[in-house]
């Protein structure tokens, strides 16, 4: 009940703040433009590819590479949309209001997390509508598309959890955003050195976001990847709940 109530008012705040709309509009415009460019290239090369015996179709050559671009957008969206979730409340002195309303730290964190995630999932849903409407004239590979959509959903869920955790620890929304950018960069770049040395396995590779996201972008969903996302989301949210709980007990 409290999670829904917190989510409701956080959603209301996202709805009324220009930041959410601006980011959504920029993402939609940028992704829409890229989709048109990639689709045009595909149409231009379609006949030559068929002649060369290349069996890759619209999903492999347009939809999946195009959806991979959304991950880059998500690196920016998630930190910016979650930075004020708890740091903003703390700065405005409104966090104690939630405590005095009997709202538990878990409900505060989850309510804010789900509100920000829902906003970004709606953006993803609108983006997915672009390749889906082309099903009228082409034959998408629904399995690959679903796996890629699942991967992006999990990536958004993980990046938002990191953003909320950074917001729980930061005193200012800008610091929270900076912290989330750094953690995201670490998640992306943790295996770069290992890859440069030619190491394919190892802990560094297992820790990297790309190791678990790229297979889903190719239509492969494995338990190992799902566990990685669940661990990251769970750890980040637990840290945030713990921090907010401490704030209530110790007064920040």
């Amino acid at each position: 009940m409290s999670v829904r109530a917190v989510m409701g008012y956080e959603w209301c705040r996202l709805w009324t703040r220009p930041l959410g709309w601006v980011l959504a509009a920029l993402t939609m415009a940028g992704m829409g433009w890229e989709f048109l460019l990639m689709l045009n290239q595909y149409l231009a090369l379609q006949v030559r590819l068929a002649a060369a015996g290349n069996t890759s179709g619209f999903t492999d050559l347009v939809t999946l590479p195009w959806l991979a671009l959304f991950v880059i957008a998500a690196f920016v969206l998630a930190p910016l949309l979650t930075m004020g979730a708890l740091a903003g409340e703390r700065r405005g002195g409104t966090l104690p209001l939630l405590f005095s309303a009997g709202v538990s730290p878990t409900a505060v964190v989850l309510g804010k997390y789900f509100a920000a995630l829902l906003w970004q999932l709606l953006i993803l849903l609108l983006l997915l509508a672009m390749p889906v409407v082309l099903a009228v004239v082409t034959h998408p590979d629904w399995g690959k598309l679903a796996a890629a959509a699942l991967g992006l959903t999990l990536a958004l869920a993980a990046l938002n959890a990191v953003g909320v955790a950074c917001s729980a620890f930061a005193g200012h929304p800008a610091l929270a955003a900076a912290g989330a950018f750094v953690v995201t960069a670490l998640l992306v770049g943790v295996n770069k050195l290992a890859l440069a040395d030619g190491a394919i396995g190892g802990i560094a590779n297992w820790l990297a976001l790309s190791t678990h996201l790229q297979p889903m972008g190719r239509g492969l969903v494995s338990t190992d990847d799902l566990v990685w996302f669940a661990l990251l989301i769970g750890t980040a949210l637990l840290l945030a709940i713990r921090r907010v709980g401490d704030e209530r007990t110790r007064g920040g």
């Binding site: 008012y9 209301c12 705040r13 009324t16 002195g93 409104t94 104690p96 939630l98 009997g102």
Partner: peptide
């Protein structure tokens, strides 16, 4: 069971007055 007005009345600036009161009511179930 408790109504609290903290010093300087911290409020959510993005909401209007009615939204604020409604959010406050929903938080209390």
């Amino acid at each position: 069971d408790i109504g609290w007005l903290p010093e300087r009345a911290p409020l959510w600036p993005e909401l209007n007055v009615i939204e604020h009161l409604d959010a406050s009511a929903r938080l209390r179930g």
